[in-house]
Amino acid sequence: MIKPVCSAVPTNLITGFLGAGKTTLIQQLLAQKPSHERWAVLVNEFGQIGIDQALMGTSQDIYIKEVAGGCICCANALPMHIALSQLLAKAKPQRVLIEPTGLGHPKQILETLSESHWQTTLALQATLCVIDARQYQDPRVQTHESFLAQAEVADILVFSKNEVLDDAQRASVLDFARQLPPPERQTVFISQGQLDANYLAMPKRPSRQVKRSLLHSLPTALPPVGLVNQDSIEAPYHYHQRALETEVGGWVFPASWQFNHNALLDVLFALTTLRIKGVMHTQEGWLAINLTPLDASLNSTHEAYDSRLEIISEQPIDWSTLERELLNTRLMT
């Protein structure tokens, strides 16, 4: 029998750029959870449609809660306070993992969680930053404000997808790690998201203030956080918006709607985007989709409450045309 929490809960922040492999890493860490413990995960989706809860699933001893519709590290942190308080009260976990959006700055989150009223509730341990060394080869990533901010606050730099990296890519990210402001961070290369869960218990490094631009703090830079109640979204539903110089949009479809597996993938693979993530009901079963410019992950998954698809793109998208193409793949019975 799992006992209620009586002391501060060990808590980790797991950051990383879009498509770096955060969700895969968290899934593998959850698989290593001690059988007698209950863990909780707070996920911040940049868009308004939560996907990760459907991908990770929830069980008796794993609780997932999403904060969708923006970045919990910006402007008003109230949605994070509320979501975290609800998660702690409901789950009474022995560990909390927090996954911010891949376009966010985590420094503000760490500052919020270090405030006095959280210190008796949460025990902050190592912050992990997941980096795909292949993404790092893009000069735009190397100078991206969010990417640099995520790496600077990390205690451990987790270089993912080692199975497809070459020696030059490995050397480049290790050189990047050495050039970050002190104190030195631990580095580790992983394959298939497999990281020893003992890394979570590592202590935080002594903090060092790093000055960055004020751009990310502007309230107009991001959509409001937490304005979309995931329980209140009724399918079919669509939204799109522009934020942080990206196009963001998505759909929720009724679970009873089935889509042609191959035709749906033809539509999605024809797009040029930063990320496509979803859980869709096809005639071949439920499909978990995670596409980036460097990777395509397609896996069978458990039945979901509805089908969900979310797209983040640097290029303009004709949302009306794309919706028509998606609906054309629906199987009519």
Rank of each mutant, 00 (worst) to 15 (best):
1 M>G: 14
3 K>D: 04
4 P>K: 03
6 C>I: 14
11 T>W: 00
15 T>R: 03
16 G>A: 01
28 Q>L: 07
29 L>M: 08
31 A>W: 07
36 H>I: 07
39 W>E: 00
42 L>I: 10
45 E>S: 07
47 G>Y: 11
50 G>F: 11
61 D>P: 03
62 I>H: 01
67 V>H: 02
74 C>Y: 05
84 L>S: 14
85 S>K: 07
86 Q>V: 10
98 I>H: 09
100 P>V: 08
102 G>L: 01
104 G>Y: 03
110 L>V: 08
112 T>A: 10
113 L>S: 12
114 S>E: 09
115 E>Q: 15
117 H>G: 05
122 L>R: 11
122 L>G: 06
125 Q>D: 09
127 T>V: 13
129 C>V: 06
134 R>W: 04
136 Y>E: 08
144 H>M: 01
145 E>N: 11
150 Q>D: 04
157 L>M: 11
158 V>H: 00
162 N>Y: 07
165 L>T: 07
165 L>S: 10
167 D>Y: 08
179 Q>N: 15
184 E>I: 04
185 R>T: 12
186 Q>R: 03
187 T>I: 11
188 V>C: 07
189 F>Q: 06
193 G>W: 02
193 G>R: 05
193 G>P: 00
194 Q>V: 04
195 L>N: 01
196 D>P: 06
197 A>I: 11
198 N>I: 04
203 P>L: 07
208 R>L: 07
214 L>A: 05
226 G>C: 10
233 I>Y: 03
235 A>T: 11
236 P>A: 04
249 G>L: 02
249 G>N: 08
252 V>N: 02
257 W>S: 15
262 N>F: 14
269 F>W: 15
274 L>Q: 10
276 I>K: 05
281 H>V: 05
283 Q>I: 03
290 N>C: 07
291 L>N: 06
291 L>F: 15
292 T>R: 08
296 A>T: 15
298 L>M: 10
307 S>Y: 03
308 R>F: 06
310 E>H: 14
314 E>W: 13
320 S>Y: 02
320 S>D: 02
321 T>I: 14
325 E>A: 09
